[in-house]
Design a binder for these strands. Structure first.
Lengths: 362, 362
DNA sequence: CGCACTTCTGGTAACGATACCATATATCCT
DNA sequence: AGGATATATGGTATCGTTACCAGAAGTGCG
């Protein structure tokens, strides 16, 4: 053609077979670790494979065998610490089983989510683990993909399809226990920063907050509850939201003595706002985050938070996936709801003054 | 077989063709947007496609056409903010061109890096963008993959192969300018936290630090230079390393008045250590990070840092990839070295006391 | 009108591997 | 010994799609 190159095709089993003086089928058996291969055949073929640096064509393999040994993972966003933990948990279980992983991200766009799902589906991934945020269109699309029987696990939210499992954390209970922690420290005026009505997990956290107040006979005041400015912002990046929301809270006459934030980043933004106003955490206002992101241990003061054991969610998702792929794919739906864990650090409980909150409340 | 199901195969163009009463070839042309298709044919076929929810088999497509429209991206780690920005930059350029992206991570393991690369290669990705950390074995493996002519771009480090481009930031210059910033504020005793001799970027940063001191006739003291405890730790997660290193620095008699940290996380760990010791940033010790991770704007005080414009690195990588795929794949190597940008925040320069550092130095 | 050219549709072979079948030899058991 | 079984290798068809070729039908033009 125009230049040189272009000629250089990929190697095939036929090339290997010719070079090794055997039949293509024998090469296939060797690279598939088939039991019925003599030792000398195996050695002869592997020698040529290594020598010529041959890599089997996964497209042809998948096409013929109808299995790709690929698990597709669709994440909401790559920077989210959630994502990393989840992937780690999944790989821990499925790597030893010989699976590869192709990760795609939806980047807060429904169109991209669909493009990612479509690409993975069209490449005939053996299964899909989906951890995107819930949207109407997203759900419809997922349902359409699940219909032909593709094994699918949804992580981090409910999903209502008879053949799709889901794995979540009990956000409601996590928030509930966080509030009870604050109450046990003497707080009576507890605010919530970062309400989101579009986000399932966020909503369940908020409900846990409300229910904990109710069950402890504490009043719920809308003055102490603030949502983010940008309702459509993603979960994790709302330090800004936290900052803004807290500023708004602080500008009011009545001030809470403690805050439950929707997540750690919101909490950090809120802490920054509190410090900015000249107040101190936890002496003036105690604060609890949610998610236990790695950095939460390094804020000043270190953040009390709720860990939703995401790595465990990853492991469970992988386990369910394996069940569906290797076992009965049409078995009834499994739902797993994991416990959260309260991590107490110094943003609610100062070493210096054991129970500072008791003297605060406006 | 054992249960029901299992029968349900995927739909094919033949199914669509039969249902629409046309030839399979016509279906192929429609889904490929071929020009020579009548309007009614297109409508007829698309109607059935939508109706039956048909998705073409990318394995078969790729096998026959020898193009997959997939770009493989191999990242060192998924939680790294670097990763997110890079992917964003890449996608910005290549999504409009109709490419899909499969991301894999090496998770600080050479074996996993190779598995990821192998999987992407075997799935015949049209190109590979590799941003893993440099290792001997990793390089060898990459060279072997590049040999058959697979378009490949290496990001974040040099790579010496005539047909592999690379894109990096000028870490040396970034560090150099950071040090000059500190010097311009009056600092004379400037330490470095987080020396790494295994990491290319880290090493170049350290050299920039050394050269800036030398060029400004400042003494280099080994007492002011500390490496991490765990030499093999990854770039980003070393808040611990930063903390430990700073503690060690502070335990000495002679104390620096400013610190350049290897990266933002190390810097945050160091800040935490300084605060922990009862000292203040920037009044007692000024500190500069590296990378401008999103959180660096939210530490207390906000961190002065060096931005290596990673999104731009992503864009450039994508641009080079496109050149190689659509143009002359055998053209000579391109090397791109992007400028860093110093972001001045309050960890070096306090609003309250304009130039506090001037009065500090031991 | 006839020839070149564009537009449109369909058939056939092939991409690179494996499922399945056939066959050959070695091994075992009664 | 002889039939059954395990081991080892090779041949053929096929997975689902597109490259390529063939040809029909419509268009333009001297």
């Amino acid at each position: 053609m125009d230049r040189s190159s272009r000629k250089k095709k990929h190697l095939t089993i036929v090339d290997i077979a010719r070079r090794a003086g055997v039949a293509p089928m024998s090469v296939s058996r060797v690279i598939n670790d088939n039991a019925y291969v003599s030792k000398q055949m195996r050695e002869k073929v592997l020698k040529v494979v290594k020598e010529l640096n041959y890599h089997p064509n996964a497209l042809a393999r998948g096409l013929k065998s109808q299995r790709t040994q690929v698990i597709g993972i669709v994440l909401p966003d790559i920077v989210n610490p959630f994502s990393a933990e989840l992937v780690r948990g999944i790989q821990e279980v499925l790597l030893p089983q010989g699976y590869s992983f192709f990760i795609s991200t939806s980047e807060r766009s429904v169109a991209r989510e669909q493009a990612a799902l479509r690409a993975l589906f069209e490449h005939r991934a053996d299964g899909l683990i989906v951890a995107t945020r819930e949207t109407k269109e997203g759900n419809d699309f997922l349902l359409r993909l699940a219909e032909p029987g593709l094994p699918m696990i949804v992580v981090g939210r409910q999903f209502n399809h008879p053949r799709v499992d889901h794995v979540t954390a009990d956000h409601w209970k996590g928030a509930y226990e966080a509030v009870e922690h604050l109450i046990s420290l003497g707080h009576r005026s507890i605010g919530f920063v970062g309400v989101s009505l579009v986000n399932g997990a966020g909503l369940r956290r908020f409900r846990g907050y409300l229910d904990a107040l109710r069950d402890n006979n504490l009043p719920v005041s809308s003055k102490l509850i603030v949502g983010p400015d940008r309702v459509s912002g993603p979960d994790y990046s709302t330090q800004d939201d936290g900052y803004e929301a807290m500023k708004r809270l602080l500008s009011q006459r009545k001030r809470p003595s403690a805050i439950l934030a929707r997540n750690d980043f919101t909490a950090m933004g809120a802490m920054y706002a509190i410090r900015d106003t000249g107040l101190s955490v936890p002496d003036d206002i105690a604060i609890v985050g949610f998610d236990n992101v790695p950095l939460s241990a390094y804020t000043t003061p270190p953040l009390t938070t709720v860990d939703q054991t995401i790595i465990q969610q990853g492991r469970e998702s992988a386990r369910l996936m394996l069940e569906r792929i290797t076992g009965d794919r049409a078995r009834e739906r499994r739902e797993i709801n994991l416990e959260c864990r309260l991590i107490i650090r110094e943003s609610t409980w100062s070493k210096a003054a054991p129970s500072p909150a008791l003297v605060t409340s406006a």
